[in-house]
């Protein structure tokens, strides 16, 4: 191979860029997974309440975000939502910063999957457990807290870890709205050094090094919840 690899060139002088990019990626992944988890618990509970005026809107939300690409969602929140808001809000002049638009999109995307994971975990618990809890006089909240959730959470963890891994990779889409995450940092370094092979390889390796242990951990949890 005639190509001469040079990794030194893409790091020297760019350490701070890379560190910041990595930090932003990890921060976005954690924040949107956390936010999504919160949405998932709230919406999942809403679906379980069996009230049409509650479950109707939640279904619309879940299906909307599940059946459209997250890239489209991020772009829509950044470019389209401000126009819509300005048309509705008198005065106008609203602008959604890129970091917020992208964050909202990613969080809502995670939230719709978390909702399904939460709901699925709860309804997977045998109905006998529910009726036994009610028969000894537990209220709905007591039954959920002491009987259903402790069993359901163990079943939710593996799919949740799985979805979090996907979410972590999806943060690379921040690139399209110029949030300087790991991927966008790579783009900037390439523009500076003209070394796309080294840069994008390094970016890929960074994602891999973080996520491979996470998927292995997820596998272990899955095996454990089978027992």
């Amino acid at each position: 191979m005639g190509y001469k690899w040079d990794f030194y060139m893409i790091f020297a002088g760019y350490e701070w860029w890379w560190l910041k990019g990595l930090g932003i990626t990890v921060a976005y992944a954690s924040a949107t997974v956390g936010g999504g988890l919160l949405i998932g618990v709230v919406c999942g509970m809403g679906l379980l309440a069996n009230r049409w005026w509650l479950s109707g809107p939640i279904h619309v939300y879940v299906e909307t975000f599940r059946c459209t690409p997250v890239l489209v969602q991020i772009v829509w929140f950044y470019f389209a939502l401000p126009i819509l808001l300005n048309a509705v809000v008198p005065g106008g002049g609203l602008e959604l910063p890129a970091w917020l638009a992208a964050g909202i999109g990613l969080t809502l995307y995670m939230g719709c999957f978390a909702t399904e994971i939460f709901r699925g975990g709860i309804i997977s618990i045998d109905k006998g457990q529910w009726q036994a809890a009610r028969a000894i006089g537990m209220t709905y909240a007591e039954m959920m807290w002491h009987i259903v959730l402790p069993q359901a959470v163990r079943r939710m963890v593996p799919p949740f870890v799985n979805q979090s891994v996907i979410q972590f990779k999806n943060t690379a889409l921040l690139y399209v709205v110029a949030v300087p995450d790991l991927m966008y940092t790579g783009y900037l370094v390439v523009a500076d050094t003209y070394r796309p092979l080294e840069v994008y390889s390094a970016v890929a390796i960074a994602y891999f090094v973080i996520l491979y242990p996470l998927t292995q951990w997820g596998k272990r949890l899955e095996a454990r919840s089978d027992r």
């Binding site: 045998d126 006998g128 457990q129 009726q131 036994a132 028969a135 000894i136 006089g137």
Partner: peptide
């Protein structure tokens, strides 16, 4: 409900 005690066909012990 707690004034009744109930035992079920499938036991339904908290797993």
């Amino acid at each position: 409900r707690a004034r009744f005690g109930m035992v079920f066909q499938q036991f339904d012990l908290f797993a």
